[in-house]
Amino acid sequence: MPGETALEYLRNAWYAAAAEAEITRTPLRRMLLDTPVVLFRSLDGNPVALQDRCAHRFAPLSRGTLLGDELQCGYHGLRYDRGGRCVHNPHGPRIPAHADIRAYPLASRYGFIWLWPGDPALADAALLPDLSPFDPRPGYRTQWGYLRIDAHYQLVIDNLLDLSHVEYLHPAFASGGAIGNTRHEVIEADGVVHANRWKPGCTVSPLLGRCWGRPDAIGDARSCIRWHPPCTLFLDVGATETGADPGDGVTLSFLHLPTPESGTRTHYFWAATRSHSPDDDELTGWIQATTERAFMLEDEPMIEAQQDNLGPGADMASLHPVYLAPDLAPVKARRILARLIEAERGAQPAGIR
């Protein structure tokens, strides 16, 4: 993608670009991996993503008008079809050479629109991680949210893979008496990092207690998250009676999708799904408000302050941070991603890096 910082982004991968409901017949501009993209739905309902930059004077096409399935530039009237081809020049019979723009492969799954910024020939929806708990299912309630964080996307991934911070930063998610009694395991398998925290005999968090209908219950709690490169994280949190099978208690699943906007800004898409009391609108509203408060008023300010301390473009490892036991998963993820980016860069001709 033009303008991309090669050392920061893996290109041949799927990134969440928008929630399904965001894409309509009104063109939506979104900066993704330092590149402007315009998203809209064609007349048949399929999502379309084009580079949001007219080939003429580089005006944003998102400021233009959809005419059927053609997007007309609002500056001088060139029109582009959903494949990025310039199909109409109102200033003469000839379509100028090199007037086409890039169209991006998309996939619609799990309530989100995913964009492939790399080689279109390599785009395959089968490469999306298995996030099947977020497929539409009877008896489940799923909700979504979004925020923008003024920080590098890897800081957001670090935050999610080290859930020890929950006990200090998120009162609604904290499990009383858990921090000294937690069994933490990190597993790396096939390029996926799993970070599992098992908290026996603790006071269940307010979030799980409310979903379970048992505030202040004592039980076995868990928070198990897995990271798929570059930016997909699936989190399973739950609680049971002490010593019971995890399937017998309450489960709440989260999807975290931090997509880089730039080197210092991140789109943070999230979703939550549950089977407990799916028709309870009051509970749904409480989960939405509690989750948004945790992300916007607790995580976001801390990560942004961390970014301010690091400065733009700073390499965290070069500052020689102190590493603690819960850092193993974030460090593994950073190393895997660095290897993937380096391998991708090495496979490209030098002239297009």
Rank of each mutant, 00 (worst) to 15 (best):
P60S: 04
D162Y: 12
R109D: 04
N309Y: 00
T240D: 00
A121M: 03
L155E: 08
D158K: 09
S108F: 01
R137L: 08
A189S: 06
C202Y: 03
L71R: 08
D220P: 02
R226V: 10
V87R: 13
R141P: 12
Y153K: 02
P129G: 07
V193Y: 12
N12D: 14
D308W: 00
P229M: 05
R345Q: 13
L169Q: 06
R137A: 14
C231M: 09
V193H: 11
R102T: 14
Y146Q: 12
W114P: 07
V87W: 08
Q154W: 09
F134R: 11
V204Y: 07
H267D: 11
A239R: 02
A16I: 14
R57G: 02
H194Y: 15
D124M: 03
L340F: 09
A271K: 04
T266H: 01
N181C: 05
H256S: 06
E292P: 01
E20N: 06
Y75I: 14
S132T: 10
P117W: 09
I225V: 15
R30I: 03
G3M: 05
E298R: 05
D248P: 02
E4C: 04
P326E: 04
R109M: 02
E22S: 05
I303L: 03
R334W: 07
V322S: 05
I23E: 04
D245Y: 03
V204K: 10
L328K: 13
I187D: 02
L147S: 14
Q72M: 13
H91P: 09
V237M: 06
R210I: 10
Y110N: 02
I341N: 08
W116K: 04
T284S: 01
A347D: 15
T242P: 04
A123V: 04
R109F: 01
G180T: 09
G191A: 10
P2V: 04
R94C: 10
T284Q: 00
R197Q: 12
R141T: 14
A272P: 00
R214E: 14
D281R: 03
W227L: 11
A21Q: 06
E70R: 15
N309I: 00
G176P: 11
L169E: 05
D308Y: 00
V192H: 07
A97Q: 10
G68N: 15
P93H: 08
L43D: 15
H76N: 08
W270Y: 14
S42G: 01
R339A: 13
I101P: 10
G313R: 13
A329G: 13
A103P: 13
N309W: 00
L78P: 05
R265I: 01
S175Q: 10
S42M: 00
Y323W: 07
L310E: 01
A59N: 02
P117V: 08
A271C: 05
G311D: 03
P105N: 05
Y140F: 14
P278K: 15
T251A: 06
G139N: 14
S253W: 07
V38F: 05
S175M: 06
L33S: 03
P36I: 04
W14I: 11
T290S: 07
